[in-house]
């Protein structure tokens, strides 16, 4: 060991055992001090030039130990040097699908913070559009659906090989459950709606669409019905979303503010933006059988 390392070892030992039980070493002087300064880096020299106050002589061993500790700690931090270079974690597998664009990423941020009921639909849209998830979203999504094997498998499909690579490096991102091999990852279960809302949705989805029943239901809806109304909006096709938005903005584009109309309009607009940002392009959506990996 160097004189500096010896000194540091001695002074930290004295501090831990107590200066009543262990003698405090003398500070380095002369060439040894210069060597110590070199050992902890040139920046210590800068530190010396900035030294505000000359040290006060003190015969108290505890005070001397504190001063040595303080000087040593600063010297070590000021002389910080990186450790040896390490092998970076890299994946050699590449996914030819393009990542989703910034518009879709921003939509995800809105979904995650304002309309989490659309979170799985977002991943389905990514799959159907032939895109892959941007890398920064993948760890959070794997963690988000840790307890839901089907949704977790959907994220793995949308993230490609990156997801399996991350799971291998960080097993806490895996899910314990399993999914049937023939499960279609792009099919989401239909959200439950009341009979009356179901009829209103059917009227809007009909060949001769009538948005009035759904608009009435939305405008008369109370806060307690917010979830089922949101579910009804979640079932609508793109065409019906456009019709609903038009019906909820009857006067010069100003939205109706009755009942649940603002919330329904916001959700419909978000779904419409999602559909436009990630239009379906893939003829054969992936299934679980396409995946291989540790958490299948």
């Amino acid at each position: 060991m160097t004189a500096w390392a010896d000194l540091w070892h001695e002074v930290t030992t004295a501090a831990l055992l107590g200066t009543e039980r262990r003698a405090v070493p003398d500070p380095l002087t002369g060439p040894e001090a210069a060597a110590a300064v070199r050992a902890v880096g040139d920046t210590v020299a800068d530190a010396e030039t900035h030294r505000p106050v000359p040290p006060r002589g003190d015969s108290d061993p505890a005070r001397r130990a504190v001063r040595l500790l303080a000087a040593g700690s600063v010297a070590q931090r000021a002389g910080i040097r990186p450790g040896a270079p390490l092998d970076p974690c890299r994946t050699s597998d590449t996914d030819s699908r393009p990542t989703v664009g910034p518009v879709a990423v921003e939509l995800w941020r809105r979904i995650a913070s304002e309309w989490p009921v659309l979170d799985e639909e977002f991943v389905v849209r990514v799959l159907e559009s032939g895109h892959r998830l941007p890398p920064d979203l993948v760890p959070g999504m794997l963690r988000r659906w840790h307890g839901s094997p089907l949704a977790h498998a959907r994220v793995r499909a949308a993230a490609g090989t990156l997801a399996d690579w991350l799971i291998e490096l960080s097993p806490t991102l895996a899910t314990r459950g399993r999914v049937a091999a023939d499960a279609d990852l792009t099919i989401l279960p239909a959200p439950p709606v009341t009979e009356a809302l179901g009829i209103a949705v059917d009227a809007l989805e009909a060949a001769d669409p009538d948005p009035r029943p759904l608009v009435r239901a939305v405008c008369n809806g109370s806060f307690a019905e917010r979830i089922v109304v949101a579910n009804a909006v979640r079932t609508l096709s793109v065409r019906s979303l456009e019709l609903l938005l038009a019906a909820l903005a009857p006067r010069r584009g100003e939205p109706v503010t009755l009942g649940l109309a603002p919330a329904a309009a916001d959700l419909a607009a978000l779904r419409l933006s999602l559909a436009r940002a990630l239009p379906a392009r893939v003829a054969a959506p992936p299934s679980v059988s396409d995946q291989e990996g540790p958490s299948r």
């Binding site: 990186p82 270079p85 092998d87 974690c89 993948v138 760890p139 959070g140 963690r143 991350l166 960080s170």
Partner: peptide
């Protein structure tokens, strides 16, 4: 840790507990 050809510096345990290290890992995969 973060690493480059000049050396490496450890990430704080605080960063390892939360998702931030996962995001850095995912973004530096290539």
């Amino acid at each position: 840790a973060l690493t480059d050809p000049t050396g490496s510096l450890p990430l704080a345990a605080e960063a390892g507990r939360v998702s931030s290290v996962g995001v850095v890992l995912a973004c530096t995969a290539e």
